[in-house]
Computed example of a mutant assay.
Amino acid sequence: MIPFIESQQVGEHGTIHRKLDSNSSVLRSFRGLHGQVIEGVGEAIGAGRIPIGAQLVPESIAIESKTSRALVREALRVLQSKGLVIARPRTGTRVRPVSEWDLLDPDVIRWRAGGIESAKQLRELLDLRGAIEPLAARHAARATTPAHLHKLQTAVDAMAVAVARSDWNAFTDADVEFHRGLLEAGGNQIVGQLAGPIESALRVRHALNLIPHELTAGVVASHQSIVDAIVDQDVLRSELASRRIVDVAGAEVISALLSRD
């Protein structure tokens, strides 16, 4: 059995896990003492500081977090609902293999972002965006509504203001609203439900500083091109404009990761 470990930062082969910027646009889902336990244990598991198969001891976690065992058990049930742990009568609560986690859960995405698989996760999320967003743009060009178009244009306008002010936090918020709106614009509810993980991917990218050194008007124009194509009901142009944005984002992430190696 191992105690709850929160402060250890050195990973396999001495790799220092990247910590998310506390001032970033990545928003924590849980608050209060209960939330602190969920976030603390979730981050420790997601980042690999508590290894796969390790047994979590509620008594140790309660002592470390200065909370009650009842509150800790409730927190562990939340983590179990996300696939991170499993509780069994004789073996206790243990960390499950990554393949059994809910990898599209926004909290799981955020918790994994500080670990040694951060780059792998980002590449996989970019693959997801590349498969889903162009499809959503195609659907939007065929079946969007004035309300959805207004939401997309409002997001682009907010991006333009953020670029003029060189405000990355405001830009990320506007970018999230745009891509959420794009996924919802085609009316496919299943595609729309992928907005959560894609929002987490966008925010984690910012938090890990895998972004260009400066904001330019070009990024606004690329998003505006999607809106214009949807307005024109041009299915092919909508798809291509969306795919171009995802491809550029992927290139920027890979470039930023290579510069750190």
Rank of each mutant, 00 (worst) to 15 (best):
V156I: 04
H213Y: 12
E184T: 10
S99M: 07
L208S: 06
N209P: 03
P134Y: 01
K120E: 15
T91E: 14
Q193H: 05
P146H: 07
A164F: 09
R90Y: 13
H206I: 03
I198S: 08
L202I: 15
V161K: 13
P146R: 09
R205A: 09
S222F: 08
V108M: 03
D228W: 14
G114V: 04
L122W: 09
L210Q: 12
E199L: 06
V191W: 01
I226D: 15
N188E: 00
I226K: 14
D173H: 11
P212N: 03
P97G: 02
K120M: 07
V163E: 01
I109S: 03
P212R: 01
T154K: 07
A136G: 01
A131K: 10
S166E: 13
R138V: 09
I211A: 13
L103I: 10
A141P: 05
A207I: 05
H213M: 13
L122N: 10
H223L: 08
L104V: 06
A174H: 03
A160L: 09
E199N: 13
L210V: 10
S118A: 14
L210K: 08
E100D: 15
I190M: 02
A113S: 12
R180A: 15
G114S: 10
V191K: 03
F171S: 01
V220I: 02
E100Q: 11
G114M: 02
L194K: 03
I198E: 12
L122M: 15
T93H: 05
G114E: 08
T144M: 02
W101L: 09
R203F: 07
R94F: 11
I226E: 14
A137I: 07
V95C: 13
R90S: 11
V161N: 14
I109D: 05
G181Q: 04
M159T: 00
T172N: 11
R110A: 09
A195F: 09
F178H: 02
R110C: 06
P197I: 00
V176E: 13
R96G: 07
V220S: 00
A131E: 08
H206C: 04
A158D: 12
N169W: 04
A119S: 11
A174D: 04
P197N: 04
L104A: 05
H206M: 08
A174L: 02
A141G: 02
Q153T: 09
Q121N: 07
A174P: 04
H148Y: 10
A143L: 04
A207S: 14
Q224P: 14
V204K: 04
L104E: 08
R94W: 12
E100W: 11
N188R: 00
D228E: 14
G192F: 03
D127C: 05
H150A: 11
V161S: 15
L122K: 08
S166K: 10
